[in-house]
């Protein structure tokens, strides 16, 4: 009888353990599928539920918030989806939250996403309707993509043309030419040198300016000497007086020239006849002609003299002196 009692205790433990396991498992499942807890209901009307099923999860900002209770086709354009939302999540859902249908993972079950918008809004109530977020569907995306593709094709065509032109252009040849690069390098080196020299020049100029400022050198003296300035002023005054005198002289000269002119034009003096008498000109010409001939003859005589033995020594001496002068220069 004692063994029976022990056996019964063991059996009792066994059964209790089994039932406890079962109840625990059911509890865990219920906590994830919210079977026992009292839930609030929210509704949303979709035009397309994309294969959503009753029992699918509802996520609020990614947190499990409940399940889909029912999906009812109201008419050809709208499907009413009733969501069972846990009370403790419901109090955090604002009135302006948007609802959309998404997918768990890449190809998992459908889920209903409730997304709160920015800003604080009063909480939603049991039985309220949620606004549906317009989701970009794949067809729309493909349509846009097709447009984009066309644009890309046009752009790439244009790019191709540009690339071809660049390929054939002289600029590319210039770029590919080794000599150009070397020249440019050389130029840069020259520029470098020039810059260095300019630097040096500027430095020197600077020192000159400094010196000038301090009164060193002729220019400095010129610029900083007060006596010199006074002299210069005096000189300028003198120049002024001189120029005034010059002016008077010029005026007098002018008068003189005017009277002279009148005398020349009207008078009988030798100047007038020199300028106006044509016969005199002919006579003068003849005289000049005779003079030319006379000089020529004189030249010949002189040449003959050079070769005369009496005067040869003198000419040789003259030549030697000339050579010596050029050597010294």
């Amino acid at each position: 009888m004692k063994t029976t009692a022990t056996n019964n205790i063991r059996l009792g433990l066994f059964v209790l353990l089994g039932l406890a396991l079962l109840v625990t498992a059911l509890f865990f499942i219920s906590s994830s599928s919210s079977f026992f807890s009292s839930d609030a209901q929210l509704k949303a009307r979709f035009s397309n539920v994309n294969g959503l099923q009753e029992g699918n999860n509802v996520l609020f900002s990614g947190i499990n918030a409940g399940t889909v209770k029912s999906i009812v086709l109201l008419n050809q354009h709208s499907i009413e989806v009733t969501l069972l939302i846990k009370q403790d999540v419901l109090i955090h859902i604002p009135k302006n939250a948007l609802v959309s249908i998404g997918t768990e993972g890449l190809m998992g079950n459908k889920v209903v996403n409730i997304i709160p918008l920015a800003g604080t809004f009063p909480g939603i109530n049991d039985g309220d309707y949620l606004a549906v977020e317009k989701k970009t569907d794949i067809d729309e995306m493909l349509a846009t993509l097709s447009k984009t593709n066309n644009n890309i094709a046009a752009i790439s065509e244009a790019l191709k043309g540009t690339a071809l032109r660049i390929n054939n252009s002289a600029v590319l040849k210039l770029l590919e030419n080794k000599g150009v690069a070397e020249n440019i390098e050389l130029s840069i080196q020259n520029i470098n040198t020039t810059t260095a020299q300019a630097q040096e020049f500027v430095t020197q100029l600077n020192s000159i300016i400094t010196d000038t400022k301090n009164g060193k050198g002729a220019a400095g003296l010129l610029l900083s000497d007060k006596d010199f300035a006074a002299n210069l002023q005096q000189t300028m005054a003198n120049i002024k007086t001189a120029s005034e005198n010059a002016n008077t002289i010029t005026r007098e000269m002018n008068n003189f020239v005017a009277t002279l002119n009148i005398a020349i034009v009207n008078g009988n003096g030798p100047v007038n006849s020199l300028l106006n008498d044509s016969t005199l000109t002919v006579k003068l010409n003849k005289t000049l002609d005779n003079l030319e001939k006379g000089t020529d003859n004189f030249n010949q005589d002189m040449e003959a003299l050079k070769h005369n033995f009496l005067l040869k020594g003198y000419f040789k001496k003259l030549e030697k002196q000339k050579k010596k002068d050029t050597a010294e220069d």
């Binding site: 079962l22 498992a25 059911l26 865990f28 499942i29 219920s30 906590s31 994830s32 599928s33 079977f35 029992g55």
Partner: peptide, 18 residues
């Protein structure tokens, strides 16, 4: 492990099997 297992389980999995 158990969170994953129980999250994937539904009553429709356990009750008919039981």
């Amino acid at each position: 492990f158990f969170s994953q297992v129980f999250h994937s389980l539904e009553f429709s999995d356990v009750v008919p099997a039981f």
